[in-house]
Design a protein around this nucleic acid. Sequence first.
RNA 1: GCGAAAGUGGCGGAAUUGGCAGACGCACCAGACUUAGGAUCUGGCGGGUAAAACCGUGGGGGUUCGAGUCCCCCCUUUCGCACCA
Length: 861
Amino acid sequence: MSAHDKSEAATATRNGDDENRIDRPNDERYDAQRVEQKWFARWQEDDSLYAAESRSTKKKYYVLEMLPYPSGVLHMGHVRNYAIGDALARYMWMNGYNVLHPMGWDSFGLPAENAAISNNTPPREWTLHNIANMKAQMKRLGFAYDWSREVTTCLPEYYRWNQWFFLKLYEKGLVYRKKSKVNWCPKCATVLANEQVVDGCCWRHEDTQVEQRELEQWFVRTTQYAEELLRDLEKLQGWPEKVRIMQRNWIGRSEGALVDFQLEGNAGPAGSTISVFTTRVDTIFGATSIQLAPQHPLVADFTRYNQVLGADVERLIAEQRKAKEVGDIGEIEKHGVNTHHYAINPFSGERVPIWIANYILMDYGTGAIMSVPAHDDRDYEFAKKYKLEIRLVILPISNDPEETMTEPQLPFTAHDGMTINSGPFSGISCADAIKKMSAYAEEKGFGKATVTYRLKDWGISRQRYWGTPIPMLYCEKDGIVPVPEKDLPVILPEKVEITLTGGSPLGRVPEFVNVTCPKCGGPARRETDTMDTFVDSSWYFYRYTDAHNDRAPFDGKIAQYWFPIDQYIGGIEHAILHLIYSRFWTKFMRDLGMITNDEPVERLFTQGMVIKDGAKMSKSLGNTVSPDEMVARYGADAARLYSLFAAPPDRDLDWQDSGIEGIQRFLGRVYRFFVKNATGAVSPALVGALQTTPEARAIQRKLHQTIKRVSDDFQGRWHFNTCISAIMELVNVLYAAEDHIAKKKVPAAFLAEVQRNLVLLLAPFAPYLAHELWEMLGEKGSLLRAPWPKYDAELAKEEEIEIPVQVNGKLRSRITVPADSEEAFVIERALADEKVKAAIAGKQVVKKIYVPGKLVNLVVK
RNA sequence: GCGAAAGUGGCGGAAUUGGCAGACGCACCAGACUUAGGAUCUGGCGGGUAAAACCGUGGGGGUUCGAGUCCCCCCUUUCGCACCA
């Protein structure tokens, strides 16, 4: 059937339908809904091409987008994230790789419980319903996922392995229970990890102040791997620098020394000491006080019989809390109180007063410092205020010995000085002093060199229902008893009354709580807390490689084939939480002998946010854009293409409805070109033949330039916005050549080749339209496995180039010369140009610059 | 305060290595086809001018034949960290 017949047929049917506007002949409109529905139905029937091959000789490629929480509906941020990954997956398929491109659901978590409370729907039901809905949305958007490997973390098939891992952590001493002050979000009614506290507030409730509560909790010893987590950041060259810096700061390694100061007299418990952490032990002879955090354990001993002091301490705590609330603890005005107790400096034997100060943090170091006003900004400020002694013990080193003796401006905080007034340690460099003094302290048993991290162990207990039950029992006789491996999974019971008060909901389910101890057969009580959901996402990507294994979390051999993940794509908001936990988990699994890779992710890409009207989309601002609505109005291709076109993927994207209309027009333009210029399948013999007519050559050149631009971007910097504009340019060139095409100056066989390549270029970005056009061309093979077009430099080459001619750096004219012209020829032609002649008239040309293929610049005087 | 990224037309954004600033798209203007146009096609579109000249990449200096790009100083925005001892 020719194009002419086709459009006549189309016109005939449309003319019969005159209640709407009628399209004229050749006014073929692209009905995205009809085309997308057609392919959607086919893919529903058979999506086997999206499946990764378990046995393959091809090179593997693991591309992964971060799995979503099934909140109910996709938002535009998801669409953007998945459009990037899907384009990459399709590109890699077309390049002959065995691609693993899976999807799953991070489906435990609080929103399900909140929904249960407000709608009276069981969390499981609510969650599974959301998953079904979001999965349907993903399919409608045309994302090519291997659904045979779908992972749903809230199902026992998955979470049983969380429990298994927990037992392994327990065996290795990497999980422990301790009573401690923890972050408590009153709205979530549960504990939060340090990583989940943002500016003193809950990460989910930015307006809710986190409280401190004393609770028994399970902690994962992430600090055991602190050193390696930090060191291996160097290996992650495929990660954004920004993320690596954020992780480095979060781990916060700091070298220093611990030094014990003996308490004088009988202030605290007999023989007790105050251990301080300092990075500047070289300044210890300048320590003129000890400063304790108000929450320091010793403070309680001081205030027990001193109500006045107690009240002061309360005030200091309140000031700290206030500062945290405002979010600038750095700006807090320093206050302190003198306890009138003393401690002994072990180096000098000197008595120093013990103070309590609001600028000392209990959760860093030991919660106690030695205060050296002469050599620390904060200590200096504090000492000035409270008239504490300021004693100089470090002098700046200068080449001029006279200068070395001059007193520096205080506080003098540089690290490259020389000690004075430091007893036997005087007269040496700071670095030397640190070494010698640490060694001395260790030898005498009152201190040692040490490393402190900001990173804390990961508190994973949650007093909530919708999570993985922690497989631990408490027996009256045997104490803490792990659930035997053979009894896994500990199934989360379904009939549970969910409230946000009264502790863990599971605690109110007697048949869950009351068990027999596997050791003694006596009565035991089950742990009623559940695991932080970040446990689920710490290893889920391994499960994709072997999703139905019921004997192990996954098979190590299979994981070894697929890992590390070649490309991971997700939001920057996971730069710390998820990405540190999952790096930890990988190292732990490696040490268990399950895997061989040290890091889970080779290359990480963090895409920007989708915003609207300059603000993050949110229901309260009313600036949300619904993917469903976009698909219904413009089609999935348009929604996907626009989310790639509107901005480079690593930057924020400001959504504009008028922008997606432009994309819709573009898709229609492509479609109409194919309808108007139907050609049919290409004979392989003709592909790549150099065209002879200038009209065809122009198109061929543009085609190959476009292939290069798109391919390069996939390999390199991923600026899909410019890829898509390159394809638009190609289409514009085709439209501009329509007259030539009509006059048969462009051979039909070549035109068919161009169309075929255009479809291939579009395939990663707009799969629906690409498939439709592929079929229209009469292609039989699968587009998803069609080889990516090959760039041919010869065919892309320009025969003639336009060279701008500058005079003294200002553009004066342009000349057209053969592409392979010699410099002398180009300069000669430039000098002969009328406009150039006028510009240099009466002046002397002192320098002639020719940048081959780029420009000519004539310098005149 | 420390660290990182960014600042280009009315808007989203191009310019990958120092070489034609504003690709591509949106919006707008004009024309064509039309009974109609919120379809489609064609053309225009940084400021300035009759046309040129000239001026234009946050501001100020510099290097260079030539700077959005490199160097120095400053301003603004966003993000991360923040009395971290």
